[in-house]
Design a protein around this nucleic acid. Structure first.
Lengths: 219, 219
DNA sequence: CAAAAACTTTACTCATCAGTAAAGTTTTTG
DNA sequence: CAAAAACTTTACTGATGAGTAAAGTTTTTG
């Protein structure tokens, strides 16, 4: 005699299973090539049951795409540090960890590939992922400027530059070549270089920052 | 009595028309949603005729994708200048001009969206576009290091950084939001900022470089 | 345990689309 | 200029897949 009826919780659980299956199948095949039959199979239920949960393929796709997906914001779940160098490094590493995961890349490919046919999906993703990360980065940059650690005119450009320096070329390659992802070591090399170059260009006291960074990198 | 038979030249012209139509339709709809009927229509001929030129949808797609498309290398069709600042600026502008064009973005979305199902298409694109540009940039970077204008340990990282600084955030947004492209003025702002930051981090004599850049930007 | 609600299955409809057969048209060549 | 060759079109075939109807099965709950 559960308080929340078993039926209702089953329903929620199944809905979740469908969404998980959908994300897998859509990401693997693309919107058009994915079939409802296959999604049903992956969710371990039948097509008509699937249609009890979502009215159409389109509706399922949109529901799946607008399900909360805050992975990218995990970037900021790092212990606050008083040192801006350590903080930039940990942002950069967390960002790389998330963004270079195969599932995350598959999702990005799907969104980009369907951006023309599903403009609101693309917009929603941009708003809930990159834009939010950028906002937080801008806030961070401004704080560092205020306390005299970084210098720049335009915080938005500074934030974008930080971002662009970290992974842009390897991530682009990864989007084009799903089965040729860089190793963790290679990714680390790009990330560390990105932070180094950012500090060189934006640090008030770059020489000191680079020394600090070198120390952090040698444990 | 034409030397090259009328039939043969018609054939070549029609093949070209098909490839052009294919690129349009595929880029707009994606591989699966594009129909051979629609491509035929766009090429002003009928489906069976289309099949005389290409054996299958798959073959047409691959042929279209491996047609020479050297747009990106146009980046380097700029007058050689003795000044590395002017040269970097003109690379950056040429790159932005090409890469932010709607057709080029559509093609990139298509390639990324189908990268999982057509891995060789993704690989071929990476090899003939980004990789070639990167190679040329590396060569350039090394020459500038040799003549004492730039400093760095790793030319590949320097080239990637230059690239990442120019357009990475706005281009990513453009991939997600096809109908929210930045204006020419906005793009110019990103590009100019990118060059500035690159010089600050990599220039042997950054102060002078930044002055040179400022002069170039004010005509 | 019985009524009901949820779920599954079988077995469809209908539309779309890759690919083709065969008839019709144009171009080439003897 | 006429017959052959190449090309194009109209009108199909067959497969696939979105979505559904209706009958049968399990699970939940009173």
């Amino acid at each position: 005699m559960t308080r929340v009826s078993r039926r209702a919780s089953n329903r929620r659980e199944k809905q979740q299973r469908i969404l998980t299956a959908a994300i897998q199948v859509f990401a693997e095949m693309g919107y058009s090539a994915a079939t409802m039959e296959r999604i049903a199979e992956a969710a371990h239920l039948s097509k008509p049951t699937l249609y009890q949960y979502f009215d159409s393929k389109d509706a399922l796709f949109k529901a799946m795409m607008s399900a909360p997906r805050d992975r990218m914001m995990e970037v900021f779940d790092t212990p606050e540090s008083t040192n801006h160098v350590a903080q930039l490094l940990s942002f950069a590493r967390a960002y790389a960890d998330i963004v270079m995961r195969p599932e995350y890349l598959s999702l990005a490919r799907l969104i980009i590939g369907e951006a023309q046919r599903f403009p609101d999906v693309g917009r929603a993703y941009q708003a809930s992922g990159p834009d939010r990360v950028l906002d937080r980065l801008i806030t961070f940059m401004e704080a560092q400027k205020a306390c005299g650690a970084l210098q720049f005119d335009d915080a938005e450009l500074a934030a974008q530059d930080f971002w662009g320096l970290i992974l842009s070329a390897p991530r682009n390659r990864a989007l084009h070549e799903p089965d040729n992802l860089p190793s963790a070591a290679q990714t680390a090399r790009y990330v560390e270089n990105g932070v180094r170059v950012f500090l060189k260009a934006y640090g008030v006291n770059s020489a000191q920052d680079l020394e600090d960074l070198a120390k952090l990198l040698n444990r």
